[in-house]
Amino acid sequence: MAIVRFKGYGEIEVPVGTSILEAAQELHAPEGYACGGVCACSTCHIYVTKGSNLLSDQEEEEEDMLDKAFDVRSNSRLGCQSKIERDGEIEVEITRESLEAYENEHPQERGKYVTWR
């Protein structure tokens, strides 16, 4: 099992094989997923601040999609493509882009989540 902490939104314990996006959905953390989590957009863009070595490697398709994201950093990943491969602790920051996408996908949630940036 792995513990995934979403900065400002809580943490959840999930089994190996779970994606960061799936963990966010189970926790009800506001990570966007306009394409349904199939690597066809960048709305699940996150920053992995701890435990990136516990995740699957970034593949070319994810790198290409991240080229379309805003404020990409060295620790940027797509939540739908970041599969947990080993037990441990992972810390994630949901990007402003992802939070805004989530609120667009869930209008009833608008204003519920505070952006700390």
Rank of each mutant, 00 (worst) to 15 (best):
S74P: 03
T95K: 05
F70L: 08
E59Y: 13
R77L: 07
K68I: 04
L55W: 07
V72R: 05
D71H: 13
E85I: 02
I94E: 04
E60Q: 14
A69L: 02
E97K: 05
K68Y: 12
L66K: 08
E85H: 01
E91C: 00
F70H: 07
F70K: 03
A69H: 05
E91S: 09
Q58K: 13
Q58E: 10
E63N: 12
R96A: 04
A69R: 04
E62C: 02
E97N: 06
M65K: 09
L66G: 06
G51H: 12
R96E: 14
D87K: 09
I90Q: 11
K68C: 10
L54F: 07
S74D: 12
E63T: 15
I94V: 11
E89G: 00
D67I: 00
Q81F: 02
E63M: 10
S52I: 14
Q81M: 15
E93I: 12
R77T: 06
E91T: 01
S76D: 10
K83N: 11
S82R: 14
K50S: 13
S76V: 03
G51S: 09
K83S: 08
I46R: 08
V72G: 01
T95C: 05
I94H: 03
R96G: 01
E62V: 03
I46S: 05
T95E: 11
E63C: 02
S56Q: 06
N75V: 11
D67F: 02
T95Q: 08
N75T: 07
E61T: 04
A69D: 04
T49C: 09
C80A: 09
